[in-house]
Amino acid sequence: MERRLAFRRLTDRLAGCSTTALSAATSLLAVAIGLVLLARAWPILTTRPLGELLLSTTWKPLQNAFGYYPFIMGTLCVTGVAMVIAVPICLLTAVYLAEYAPRRVYAVVKPLIDVSAGIPSVIFGIWGVIMVVPFVQRIASSEIGRSLSRLPFFQIDNPTGYSVLAGGIVLAIMVFPVIISVAEEVIRAVPVGLREASWALGASRWETIKYVVLRHAAPGVLAAVILGFSRAFGETMAVMMVVGNVPQVPRSLFDAAYPLTALIANSYGEMMSIPLYDAALLGAALLLLVVVLLFNLSARLVLMRIARYG
């Protein structure tokens, strides 16, 4: 009996040690990924000043010129357009789901949104090629497009439809479920007492939402938007299929762009033959990782605080 107990306690201790070790190891995976990418990108980071890498516009691997600027701008423009489209729509939907939706509507809508979070990015890409690109192309060649093209950021030099706008629309739809589900949860977490106090003062429902609920939920809503942003920032396949992949700094919504993610995905096959090329590509991956990690970490810390202190 004594020995059996000792055995059971030993098993328990061993299991405790091994699960702890494994948890620590997996938690450090993000750090490990960063270090591995840093090690591979080291040759290019040490031979060139960071300013030149980030701000130079020439990307000519054959002549050893590696400037990330067009790609960074490509990623930022596409993501920016996506966020401009997605944020208002997502916040209004989240407010509706958390504050107005009757239970029966909620029971139908919520699972649909959850399911759509699982649709693979390639499917969004195909859909973009089938519907969004021709749509943008038609706008570009229509009367509306011609009158729009006098405005800054709307010039039409690229009639193909493979453009920043197409990428932005596709990405916006991809991040809908991310932003909506986080924002809805945050809005729901606002204490009912606050709302009741506002109603008691005679405020209407929308006024309560505007002055009380959203103000209280602001940090969490911001975190939701940031999570959506970083999801869009790192998206590869869907964007790559619709933005045109022309290495230039986009000047207009209808210009083609070349995001960082697409650069990595498109060039991996050829990177072996040229020195420094793979360092440059893994440097791009490192850049993506750092940005996404910073954004994610700050958003998650905010959300954790909300979950803990209510």
Binding site: T26, A30, I33, G234, T236, L288, V292, L293, F295, L301
Partner: peptide
Amino acid sequence: LAMDVLWGIPSIV
């Protein structure tokens, strides 16, 4: 926290 952060890392990375 680490798991949530890992969730956000792009698949290309």
